[in-house]
Amino acid sequence: MNPLLTFLLLSILKVAVVLVIFLTAVAYTVLLERKVVGRIQNRWGPSRVGPFGLFQPLADGIKLFLKEDLMPTGVDRFLYLLAPMIALVAALLSIAVVPFGGGQTYKGVEIFDIADLNIGLLIILGITSIGVYGIALAGWSSNNKYSLLGSLRATAQVISYELALGLSLVGVVMRAGSLRLRDIVAVQSVHGMASWNVFGGFQFVAFFIYLMAAYAETNRAPFDLPEAETELTGGYHTEYSSMKFAMFFMAEYGNMIIVACVATLLFFGGATSPFGHLIPAFGGAIVQAILPVLWFVAKVLAFLFLYIWVRGTLPRFRYDQLMGFGWKFLLPLAIANIIVTSLVLAIHG
């Protein structure tokens, strides 16, 4: 078969498989959150649909599909419809550059990622910065003061924290000498856990900054001011119903998963084993190919759990605290981290 055709067909297959898995993961992250927050608040969470409430996402999906699709008067129709699509597409697009397994190939096409790009990290940052428009336009086009306030808050928050987020990654990039995500993972795979950026790479400050900034970027508690129910009745998606609301909802949880993936790749060794070469290779080639994917999923799940744990524990920031924290604490800290990391690298490396 023509190599270009093989490449195209295999790529389409990969995109379809990864997209289905990703959307399922989004649906079950919602269930995980409801379950875990339930237990934190000393109640059961959803438990009626299926065993342990496992079919709850299905029921939620059907409910959202069948809801009446309302559109308030005086909205900017085109932008009102465009906004949820931008939000969802931006949330789904980033998974394309995430390498979630080893570098095995089939007929010259990598199996465990969709695209392995030289500038993978920058692509993720770029897509994140485009995703803001979904929220900004949703609030503006809804013709509702709460929506507008919510989206203004979201935009200001994302612009402020994007700087700290980008700067926190510079140390990791300097250590790897590359923006390619597979290279960044490769640097951390030599001695297992001891060479992870967060421990052996001494990037724990950068990891802390990344985590804070990423929580703020995804508008999650304790930085969920854009959709603060008590003040804004729901923020930028107040006027959205049915599947259009579901698109914002999926975008939020998709972004959570992307942040968990990026944290895993940049600070926790991606799809490599935490034990390095301590455990001898067992099983056949297939087991050794599947094992990294399982490590990756386990790490991502741990980050998702942390996300939910933080949401269940911490109260919301005040707006001035949010801005002060971003500009006066995280940003200088990120710059200090860059200076120290580059000095150490210049002396040692």
Partner: peptide, 16 residues
């Protein structure tokens, strides 16, 4: 990142 993201978000923000 810089133009489509940061700078244009600022434009849209000011217009809003």
């Amino acid at each position: 990142i810089v133009y489509s993201g940061a700078i244009m978000v600022l434009f849209v923000f000011v217009i809003m």
